[in-house]
Design a protein around this nucleic acid. Structure first.
Lengths: 226, 226
DNA sequence: AAGAAAACTGGACCGCGGTCCGCTTATGGT
DNA sequence: ACCATAAGCGGACCGCGGTCCAGTTTTCTT
């Protein structure tokens, strides 16, 4: 499923979050909406690059994804890779873009309990669980795609999750500092943390899952489900 | 105060957290206990390196701390820097070691409300505030010293904080999954998050502080102070 | 159709983090 | 005092991320 990504879109670049061109935006969910008028050859190269990167991951793991290796595998110059994706992190993020959009679509307009239709509290619970398992599935890539600490929260995908959680929280605990609370909640879903807990401390995912539900319950002052 | 660090100790290395030699441990708080029988010249070079690094930070900011630059400034070979500190992160951590030990001493054996003597809940509140302001003071260094995501939680200093918070939580909410709760709490004090909130989103420290108190109140099901 | 401007390309180039290994120097036993 | 040995040293070396720019290709305009 990694391989289905290549045609994903890229809307106009971001002012503050510098991305040379291709910003794997994730602002609106549109069905990989408009291919941002990339020149034909550029689009072709973009696809070849993503395919090459995916292949390299499959063969040598994330560590094998060297910018030069990707360029070579795609039979493209190194400069092209950087022009397209800005930096290694950008390339890796682009690889995750598809699943990120999927998640976003799910909680923005999918069926309950994730999407609209369920009570906010339930949506929040489902949201965390979804993020948890999604991250667990792609842990290596998620870890490798982590930008330097200064950028971590500036990225649009992160912003999207944040906004959503904040919105839900406002409906559940209107008097709280929901923005801060959202950050706290999301921090506990950080891929790096999941990695540490599951792989370095051997916790089973179920524990993390009930941990999330408990956390939500405590923060919102509600009863845990069941 | 950065400049008072140089003589800090280093106990025997860590099995799992690979550090070539000098592990800026922070396991026991001992008064920078035993200089770990470093050879005389090695100890001298270590001091010179830390001093050089601090000087470089003062002059050119953290970004100016290049391993080669540090080596040159200390009039030492590049290999020596790596032998001593393992990698750039290790060097930067060593620079933070002093204040880390200080903090640890404060909450392990200092006066209340941080140290023993106060009620666990109060200690927890004070702990967060202390961490918050300490991180804010040294934000740049803290950010730069952040290791790759895989190592973030493996570091002894992090472990020390974690243990402490877990212990306090066990006294406050004995029936909860305190280990997980501790991780959630500590995540919300991550320097990267503090950086984002204060510098990128312009929140004043006071807001973070009351945010912390509120978070503790909610998680422990207690009333916020005052 | 043709020319000009804009976009894209690729590879040479740079700096830094990290490794390696032959040489030097401290240390502790006798 | 002296030697054997372990510990430490330093700089040449490597690979990778990232930049740059002269040259090429595409697209737009008329």
């Amino acid at each position: 499923m990694l391989y289905a990504v290549f045609m994903s879109s890229a809307l106009p670049p971001f002012p503050e979050y510098q991305e040379p061109r291709d910003a794997h935006q994730l602002l609106e969910v549109g069905p990989a909406s408009d291919e941002p008028c990339l020149r034909a050859d550029a689009a072709r190269n973009r696809a070849r690059l993503l395919e090459a990167a995916a292949r390299l991951i499959a063969e040598h793991g994330v560590a094998g994804v060297t910018m030069e290796a990707v360029a070579a595998a795609a039979e493209v110059g190194k400069g092209t890779v950087f022009r397209r994706f800005g930096d290694r992190t950008g390339l890796l993020m682009a690889l995750l873009d598809h699943s990120a959009r999927q998640l976003q679509a799910d909680f923005l307009s999918g069926p309950p309990p994730l999407g609209p239709g369920a009570a906010p509290l339930e949506r929040l619970r489902a949201f965390g669980v979804a993020v948890l398992y999604r991250s667990a599935e792609q842990l290596d890539l998620q870890l490798a795609a982590q930008p330097e600490p200064t950028r971590r929260f500036a990225h649009p995908a992160a912003g999207s999750l944040r906004t959503h959680v904040t919105m839900l929280l406002r409906q559940i605990v209107p008097d709280a500092d929901c923005e801060l609370l959202a950050h706290a909640l999301l921090s506990s879903l950080d891929p790096a943390l999941i990695h540490h807990l599951t792989r370095q401390r051997g916790m089973p995912m179920e524990r993390l899952e009930t941990g999330w539900l408990d956390l939500v319950a405590r923060l919102t002052g509600t009863e845990p489900p069941r």
